[in-house]
Simulated scan of single mutants.
Amino acid sequence: MSVTPPRRRARATAAALALVLLAATACNRGESAGGAPGTLKIGLLASLSGTYQAVGKDLRDGFELYLSTHDGKLGGHPIDLVVADEGNGAPTAVPAATKLLKQDRVVALTGIVGGGSVAAVYPLLNETKVPLVGSNGRPELKEVSRIWHTSYLSDEPGAAIAQHVRDNVKGSVYAIGPDYQGGWDELRGFTQAFAEVGGTLANPDGKTTFTPFPTTTNFTPYFARIKASGASAVFTFYAGSAAVDFVKQYAQSEIRDLPLYAAGFLTEGGVLDAQGEAARDIYSVLNYSPDLDNAENRAFVAAWKTKHDGSPTTYAMASYDAAAVLDRAIGAAGDDPTPESINEAIGKLGQITSPRGTWQFSTTTHSPVQKWYLRQVRQDGRALSNTVVGDLATVGR
């Protein structure tokens, strides 16, 4: 048996230790020991249970679709997508986000369904200095240096359709929605813009009616109030299972002949299938529709349909765009992408080509400056679909 001389053993041990340290350093820098880009962790937080489970699933699936069509990489780096359940809001969103940011140590966070969840997670982002590229609506925040959204501010859908409603409804409009952050923002956007263009609310004292969330499943008493108000039309925001309940009961109520206008989430995605004939003719406002005629959207819809039944939603599209934003930003962040360098790169992206059409981040709110579309639920072959019937305002500030 041969014996390695002590000096040679020491040199071999030192060399092995150097390789270990080199590999560890490369791993921390996001590259392999051989110099190739290493794996980066991205955290996706979405409602995979609760009232908005369908929305959260679309956020997850939209991001995963982008990864699957880009070799599982963003900016040239293999991506480990760590998915966590937001649940019904802040009480479950905060611990899930804490794990992603502090234990999993993701370089960026994406997703988040609820505006209340965004507000609750916001301090954690500042503490860990990790950027959020959110893909659903959010409230206005005072400081957004690490907050970016590929979707919209929650008051923008209502603001975008207010002028159209004022021009097409001869009389007052009744405003109703759920009593939580998202509902407050969505309805405020409509009622403020509607008042500014001379519209009148039919609600008592001119104040929006808010229904308890998430407990309200019977809307019949509220329909009686709308009937008594003498309203000529209704504007609302509901999503998820609440949207199904509202639309089905509306179609069977004594106000079923009143025109119904809504933020597009009322009839978006799987809820339209569940609503069926009850949703016919509803008007809605949204930043996306799968029937938009541009090359990016045709490719996106085709890719989506190879993996899923039905057409993609605005939630899926915004999450797909969040992945596209991170793809460009990580690629521009150099060989050593960090949360800070990725965040800085996002702010320099400029115009972004998207299935919704070209858009860009506002320099003040870090949300999209984008066009909004008027849609109506119409027959499309054998099924009902949200069909674009006109362009509305370009909104963003």
Rank of each mutant, 00 (worst) to 15 (best):
L101W: 01
K102D: 03
Q103K: 08
V106W: 09
V107A: 01
L109C: 05
I112A: 09
I112K: 01
V113D: 00
G114C: 13
G114W: 15
G114Y: 15
G114Q: 15
G115E: 00
G115C: 07
G115A: 01
G115S: 13
S117N: 05
V118Q: 14
V118I: 15
A119H: 14
A119I: 13
A120P: 07
Y122C: 01
E127M: 01
T128E: 06
K129I: 08
V130H: 12
V130A: 15
L132S: 10
S135L: 05
N136L: 09
N136P: 04
P139C: 05
P139M: 10
L141F: 00
E143I: 14
V144F: 02
S145N: 13
R146H: 15
W148T: 09
H149S: 15
T150R: 10
T150G: 03
Y152R: 13
Y152E: 13
D155K: 07
E156V: 10
G158A: 02
G158I: 06
G158V: 06
A160W: 15
I161S: 09
Q163V: 06
Q163L: 07
V165E: 14
V165Y: 00
N168A: 02
N168S: 14
N168G: 05
K170E: 06
K170P: 12
G171E: 01
Y174F: 15
I176W: 00
Y180K: 06
D185S: 13
D185Q: 05
R188Q: 07
R188P: 12
G189W: 09
F190I: 11
F190A: 14
T191Y: 02
A193Y: 06
F194M: 09
F194W: 04
E196Y: 00
E196I: 04
G198D: 11
T200P: 03
L201T: 02
L201F: 07
L201N: 06
L201G: 11
A202M: 14
N203V: 10
T209F: 04
F210E: 06
F210V: 03
F210W: 04
F210G: 07
P212Q: 01
P212G: 10
P212H: 09
F213M: 11
F213V: 05
P221C: 08
Y222H: 10
F223C: 03
A224H: 08
A224C: 00
R225C: 07
I226L: 01
S232T: 01
S232W: 09
A233G: 04
F235T: 00
S241A: 14
